[in-house]
């Protein structure tokens, strides 16, 4: 039998990659980021995925060798140095330090600072969201279930709760932040392009948790203002 032509091996691989990439898509996917915070985090994720993949392969390769390696000695000081100091401490500390530096640097860039960034309010209550945002002429407008923000500009969300703990999350824009009764958390986000971004409550809050969604509509600040309508029945 003749060996298979190479393309027979490549083609399925390529075909497989397409659905896999498409698989990263979705209205709630953190892997199709649409704002700087989410972009940074997605980048961090891909970097960590590659690093972890390599480490997993390395450990598996070591294991494979260890299984086949036949030795009749008891481990001596040299072996201890190699495995404990070299791999256990040296290797792990190096990897962790690099990663930690990267993580802190990204986190630092997402922090809310006291500057002139516009503020919107997000108020959670079982099981719907209420928002207050600057409307026509800058006057605050209250809406149910939809948050309107200008695209291309960062905004701060002040997150509060009327009852139990909820969590404000728009996966394509950035990380989540809890809504805790008695506390007020401020979270900075930005939508790079005008569009509709799905959001949801991420902290379990009882019977309606599965349905406690909302929507962020990022409008073009140069264009006409949107109508600031509520979502039907308070939920998109």
């Amino acid at each position: 039998m003749s060996p298979l032509p190479k393309s027979c091996l490549y083609k399925p691989a390529a075909l497989l990659a397409v659905p896999l990439l498409a698989a990263c898509d979705g209205p709630l996917s953190t892997l199709t980021p649409a704002g700087p915070a989410a972009v940074q985090i997605a980048r961090l994720w891909w970097a960590m995925l590659i690093g972890s993949g390599l480490i997993t392969l390395l450990v598996m390769a070591m294991l494979w060798r260890a299984l086949r390696h036949q030795s009749h000695d008891h481990p001596g000081p040299a072996a201890e140095r190699r495995w404990i100091i070299g791999w256990g401490l040296g290797f792990s500390l190096t990897v962790l330090t690099v990663l930690l530096g990267f993580g802190l640097w990204i986190g630092e860039r997402m922090i809310v600072r006291n500057d002139a960034t516009p503020l919107v309010e997000a108020r959670a209550g079982r099981w719907a969201w209420e928002f207050v945002q600057p409307g026509p002429g800058g006057a605050p407008v209250t809406t149910q279930g939809i948050l309107y923000v200008p695209a291309g500009q960062p905004f701060d969300v002040a997150i509060t709760s009327f009852d139990v703990i909820h969590s404000f999350w728009v996966p394509r824009l950035g990380g989540k932040m809890d809504a805790i009764p008695g506390h007020r958390n401020v979270h900075r986000l930005m939508a790079a392009e005008p569009g509709i971004y799905e959001g949801l409550c991420a902290e379990f809050c009882g019977l309606g948790h599965s349905f406690m969604n909302f929507r962020v509509i990022a409008y073009d600040p140069a264009g006409p203002l949107p109508a600031f309508t509520d979502a039907p029945e308070g939920r998109p």
Binding site: A66, P75, I84, S92
Partner: peptide, 23 residues
């Protein structure tokens, strides 16, 4: 992240043990 270090020490000690012996 640091708590991964003692864990790594153990994992590599186990692999090393297998490496130095006959599994």
């Amino acid at each position: 992240a640091l708590v991964a270090v003692p864990t790594a020490v153990q994992v590599f000690a186990w692999i090393g043990t297998m490496w130095e012996g006959r599994v």
